[in-house]
Design a protein around this nucleic acid. Structure first.
Lengths: 149, 149
DNA sequence: TAATTAGTTGAATATTATTCAGTTTTTATG
DNA sequence: CATAAAAACTGAATAATATTCAACTAATTA
């Protein structure tokens, strides 16, 4: 077999999708050319960044979801954006925000299980300069990425 | 004019998109029918929940993003799922999780500005039984929904 | 109010998804 | 290990959909 599924999942996580113009046209009872025009406009303005898939993360082996709040070490403190940019490159990271409060960065992590979670944190402490972290494990996800699960 | 843009945004937030089979086929150098077969399989298994758009939220008037941790009142405590389900129906809510720690629910909220944020919190205290809340405002979003901004 | 720009739309074309039937590969079973 | 059954793969044909274009209409600006 070719194990295409894994490749598809990683591609659809970020993009490789497109709007269904004719379906939208039907729903809104407008000509498909009008819908087409309006979508292209939103894309040109940069209002739409990407078209992507939302998964049942348990079923794709990413059932363990955690929110990690982190404070950076003295040397990294003051440059949270650099750290955040690096974190954003990690495919396990769903989102990264610089936030207000006692902790600089909020990470949403999706991994298979608690072992992979631990591997991420252990690796990150040195790699990114995490001084202190608080983790909130998601016990149940009701809605993600605007999609109800 | 017909103000189609607003309707498109709300539709694409949750769905009305589809995978680009031929583009994926090109990228992976596989026949498009093979890609088609594998995608349909993922959909049937329920691994893919939806195809949707990711926006530049500032440009669609939802530039103010907050993470809200909340503890429920005594009467609601023990039934966080009911509250979470109601919260999930709100279009301003991007995600809702039941989490570990001192607070039961973690909400990711997207609104226009701090006034709309305040309106949400004020309204929620009574509506959902929020006893105590901590809010972390996102100062900068580096990555959201697996998409780099 | 004339001129320019932005938005709408139908018809034609180009592109893409889907179906189907045949093939290969993998898995299960005696 | 042989064989049957199921799952995965694929090319050719068809169906569906997106895109282009040119004409038109509405809105905005000078």
């Amino acid at each position: 077999m070719k194990d295409i599924a894994l490749k598809l999942i990683s591609m659809f996580k970020e993009g490789y999708c497109t709007p269904q113009i004719s379906q939208v046209a039907k729903k809104l009872k407008e000509p498909s050319t009008t819908i087409h025009y309006n979508i292209k406009k939103l894309e040109k303005e940069g209002a739409i960044r990407s078209y992507k898939a939302v998964f049942d993360y348990k079923k794709i082996g990413e059932g363990y979801c955690t929110y990690i709040l982190t404070r950076l070490t003295a040397e990294k403190y003051g440059h949270p954006e650099e750290v955040a940019e690096k974190l954003a490159q990690d495919p396990r990271v769903e989102s990264v925000d610089i936030v207000t409060g006692d902790y600089e960065i909020l990470i949403k992590l999706r991994v298979k299980d608690i072992d992979e979670y631990y591997a991420f944190v252990k690796e990150s402490v040195n790699k990114y300069g995490f001084a202190k972290t608080i983790s909130l494990a998601s016990l149940k996800q009701i809605k993600t990425e605007f999609v109800r699960l």
